[in-house]
Structure formats: C-alpha cells, structure tokens
Design a protein around this nucleic acid. Structure first.
Lengths: 174, 174
DNA sequence: AAGATATAGTTCATGGGTGAATAAACGTAG
DNA sequence: CTACGTTTATTCACCCATGAACTATATCTT
C-alpha cells in the first residue's frame, strides 16, 4: 500500500487545486471527510491483514465476536446482521463458512420456525480466545502518542459525526 | 441502513461484555477503532448514494476528480492509482468505463511507450463542474455543530493516526 | 551491444458484497 | 378460519476490487 502520509499530501494539494477552479468548495470539510475515509480504509486494511492468516475477513470476525460476547453464545442471523452491519445475503454466506469450519452451529428455533439459531461452539470460543490477545498490542499502537484527552475528543467527535449522518439519512428518507 | 446511533450502542455494550470475558481488552482503543471504521463506512455509503444517480462509484469519482484538479487535465494510470488508492487492475476497468462515457480519453505517451496518457475531455470537465456544487451543502451538513476548533482537532488526530498506521506498516515490512 | 532486471498496463480467475426474487412461517383483520 | 400482509432466511445474478500471470517497453549491468 502507498503510505498514508503521501496520500494525505496528495489530498491536500488536490483539494487546494480544486478550490482554485471551484472557489466555493468547502476545503476544510472535504479534506476532513476524505481524511476520515482514508484513515478508515487504512485501518480496515491493517485489520484484515492481521486476520488473513486465520482465514477470516473482518465481517466474519465481527460475526464471531458478536456471538462470543453474547450472553449465551447464541443469536439469529437477523440479529447478527444488525451487529455486523451486513445484509442477510452476506450473513448466509458468512455463517455457511463458519459452520463448515466448526466454529458455529446452525439450528432451528422451536419458538419461531422461520428463525435460525446460531450458536458458537467450544472450538469457536477457543479460537476467539487465542485470536484476541495478540491484537491488543496493535490496538494500543494505533493510538500511540494519544493523550487520554485526545482519545476522549476523537470519540466525541466521531459520535457527533455519526449523529449528523443519521440525521441526514432520516431526512433523505422523507 | 441501520442507524449508526444504534450500532454504536451495540458496539459499546459488546465491547463491555467482551471485556468481562477477556479482562485485558483495551476498551478505549478498540471502541475508537471500531467507531472510526463504522463512521467511515457510513460516510462512504452516504457518498456512494449521492453518486449513484450519476452512475459513478467513489473510485470513479476520485479518478475523475484527480484528472480534473490536475494542472493540464492529464495523467497516467499509475499516477492515478496512487491518488485514488486503487490497484492497476481496477484502474484499467475504471478508465475503460470513463472512456466509454466520453469523460476521458486514452492515448499513448511518446516519451515512454509503455505509458498510457489519460486526459479529461471537455465533456468530463463540464460533468464535474455540474457534479460538485450540489455536494457542498452535504459536506457542510456532515460537520454541523462542529466548531472550528473541533475540525482542527479532528484533522490533527486523524493525521496522527495515519502516521501511526504508516509506522506500523513500515515495521511489518522489515 | 546483450542479457538480466524492472516497470506499465492488461487479462483472467476469484473473492467479497449487494439487490431482487423466492419460499416458508408467522401475525392479523375480517 | 381464511386471506392478506410481514418477517426470516436463502438463492441467483450481478458489481466492484484484488492477486497472479502475461506482454511490451525501458533501464541497468557488464
């Protein structure tokens, strides 16, 4: 991957050149938005690289973690879709793969026979317990040099941004 | 799409439950990282939704903008790859599509006959000039309620995070 | 000058994700 | 109880992106 620092330089220059052609371009906002997309993408890549040796994608990982952290280790596809932010189509594929690897099981709910009950297996739990700890140092490294206040600020600003996006979506629907 | 606010709630709860099982989980860092991925993804979706009516994906958009903001409106695939953060494979597909729509042209460089020279057409410039302004209000809306200091902080923190990611990558290579 | 090496771009096979259509089970209004 | 609409999950067809293999040109080494 091209280094992010270089891409950020190109971004700054590109936005500045664009502003000269289209003067009312909101420089700060566009730069921030692109910065966020860029850093988010970089983090995603970094995470996937870390997961690849275990033959997991991030969506598989999120699904597995959701089950792992669930009180009784079980859930349903639709609930997992919400947590992992996936469409049902994709969840079908993901659970197929995890079942094949013996990390989860698929069963039928007797309460509602439409629903599928997905449960993490003992193997699945072991797998996650081995998987997580090696990721902790990395998680700290991402935020090396961040003060506690920095982390609080970043969290606050991202949550505010999320609220704005929700608001925009709600407006768009009407 | 499920609202981000709801997904953030689930994230907070999930991380807290996971911490109870795996006590040394770095709560703040994991939450921030996931928050960033989530908001980044939300912003990406929002952007793509906005571009869809024009039959553009974000990568096509970035490519077109790169050419538009380039001094003489021309570049080469490999340079565009850097700017748009795409592999060469994908750039071939993107430029194929844009050429077919008459927004760019493909030619051969006489200096280096391996290189392809890509140039934005007059139609392409017109297209971008129509495309951009309607996006400005949205760009402002994303950051509604952000003070100037908030924007500066967010930018600073994202750039610092980018530097950390670069550093990690560089280390991983050795 | 010749051969090894590197770079630019394309093609091909594949992976990961989504929307539309479908089937089964559930809820509800008459 | 029946008929209609809803929800759950799956399948199918497609879109976007990537890695590996390949071709053509350029550059470096000797």
């Amino acid at each position: 991957m091209t280094r992010l620092a270089h891409r950020i330089d190109m971004l700054d220059e590109g936005v500045e050149r664009a502003r000269q052609i289209v003067p009312d371009l909101p420089v700060a906002e566009v730069t921030l938005a692109r910065l966020l997309l860029m850093v988010g993408g970089g983090l995603q890549e970094e995470l996937e690289r870390k997961l690849k040796p275990h033959k997991l994608g991030d969506s598989d990982f999120r699904t597995l973690i959701a089950l792992f952290s669930h009180p009784d280790g079980s859930s349903t596809p639709s609930e997992l879709c919400q947590f992992a932010a996936q469409g049902p189509t994709n969840m079908t594929r993901i659970t197929n793969a995890l079942v094949k690897r013996g990390l989860i099981t698929r069963g039928h709910s007797e309460a509602d026979r439409r629903q599928v009950v997905i449960r993490i297996t003992a193997d699945g739990r072991r797998f996650v317990r081995k998987l997580l700890p090696p990721m902790f140092p990395r998680a700290h490294a991402y935020f090396a040099g961040f003060s506690e206040a920095d982390k609080r600020h970043l969290g606050r600003l991202l949550r505010k941004l999320a609220a704005n996006l929700d608001h925009l979506d709600a407006d768009a629907q009407r």
